[in-house]
Simulated assay, not measured.
Amino acid sequence: MILRRSALGRSTVQVSELAFGAAGIGNLFTPVTDAEAEQAVHAAWEVGIRYFDTAPHYGLGLSEQRLGAALRSRPRGEYVLSTKVGRVLDPAPTTGGDDLAHGFAVPATHRRRWDFSARGVRQSIEESLERLGLDRIDIAYLHDPDDHAQHALTQAYPELARLRAEGTLGAIGIGMNRTELLTRFIRETDIDTVLLAGRYSLLDQSGLDELLPLAADRGVGVVIGGVFNSGLLADPRPGATFDYGTAPAHLVARALDLKSVCERHGVPLRAAALRFPFGHPAVASVLVGTRSAAEVRDTATMLRHPVPDTLWADLKEHGLLPADVPTPKEAG
């Protein structure tokens, strides 16, 4: 099976259109066994995924360890791996307890420390390489620097640029779910990519206001995360999750309307949600968090599901998408 690959902005890094988000195999919310994690990564390879994303934050390093182990037998030149900086892992002074307060079902062996200093960035990259068992990282993202914008701009970014020049990194980016700082980085730095979570989906197109046009103009590649908006677009119903909280009633109703229109065209809502971001030329890949081989295969099936042009037109006619939002063209 082959998934389309494209260059990430002006960089030489080639990413597959579907990316494997590895928070799940870091025991996000519930435990996953080593075998299940390995099977999920192998299933991703089988369906054609060649872009894998992780972070020290995910399971206090467990995600990086498991992803590196599962990819170790694969040719290094055939896949792209990204990790993140901004949270350094320090050994916990006492043992015991778990990390569920941060969302991960792992022992609390370490503590996260926000650190966007040059020294912290280099330490984070060196420790990630050790956990991954690799000698280079293809993409390093500044991870959620919402409250650390100045340090991220003046200390962390220049250090990542030095690491890129040294060849330790192939590309550098920033990842978060708010558009303002991402847009500022595109405008003020020589960044290669941004990872935008939840702000360019069937329910939220705020990324189109400024970020996506500027990225296209500056040649910055965009990876879109959160296309299901934390679950509402995967399974719309009362009590579903939107942006990590309970979805308000008006958004549940809108998601159900989206689902109804999609079903009239014979398209699962998840398939439309996965395909929608590719209507914008700056978007290179959609990143989906998966924790099992079955979830990986299902996501790949949804991405391949045909989505006719008439569906997008119908969504616009019903006021469920703005009239001027770019939409993917059906393959001829």
Rank of each mutant, 00 (worst) to 15 (best):
M1L: 15
L3W: 03
L3P: 01
L3A: 06
R4S: 14
R5G: 04
G9S: 08
R10E: 07
S11E: 09
S11A: 13
T12L: 15
E17G: 03
A19N: 09
A19L: 12
F20A: 04
A23S: 14
G24R: 08
G24N: 12
F29Y: 15
P31T: 14
V32L: 07
V32E: 04
V32R: 13
V32H: 02
A35M: 06
A43D: 04
A44E: 04
E46P: 11
E46L: 08
V47E: 12
I49E: 10
D53T: 06
H57K: 12
H57N: 13
Y58C: 09
Y58E: 11
L60D: 15
S63V: 12
S63E: 14
E64L: 14
R66W: 10
L67E: 09
L71S: 02
R74D: 11
P75T: 05
S82K: 12
P93R: 15
T95Y: 10
G96P: 14
G97E: 13
D98Q: 06
G103T: 01
F104K: 08
A105E: 07
A105H: 11
A108T: 05
A108Y: 07
T109E: 15
H110W: 08
R111T: 11
W114E: 13
D115T: 08
F116M: 03
S117C: 04
A118F: 10
G120S: 09
G120R: 13
Q123M: 15
E127C: 08
I139R: 04
A140D: 06
A140V: 15
Y141S: 03
H143V: 04
Q150G: 06
L153S: 05
L153I: 07
T154H: 11
T154K: 11
Q155F: 03
E159A: 13
L163G: 00
R164P: 05
G167S: 06
I172K: 09
R178D: 11
E180W: 07
E180L: 08
L181I: 08
I191E: 13
D192H: 13
T193G: 12
G198H: 02
R199F: 04
Y200W: 01
A215R: 00
A216G: 10
G219T: 05
V220Q: 01
G225T: 00
F228A: 02
G231Y: 00
L233C: 02
L233Q: 09
A234S: 12
D235A: 13
D235F: 00
T241S: 10
T241I: 09
T246R: 07
T246H: 00
A247N: 00
P248K: 00
A253F: 08
A253V: 10
R254P: 00
K259Y: 04
V261Q: 01
C262M: 01
R264A: 09
H265R: 00
G266C: 01
L269A: 10
A271K: 00
R275H: 13
F276T: 01
P277G: 07
A282W: 01
V283K: 05
V283W: 04
A284S: 11
A284D: 04
S285V: 10
R291P: 02
S292H: 10
A294F: 12
E295I: 01
R297D: 09
T299W: 02
M302I: 07
L303I: 14
R304G: 10
H305D: 05
P306K: 03
P308T: 02
D309V: 09
T310W: 08
L311G: 02
W312N: 04
A313N: 15
D314Q: 06
L320Q: 08
L321F: 03
A323T: 12
D324C: 06
V325C: 12
P328E: 03
G332N: 14
G332D: 14
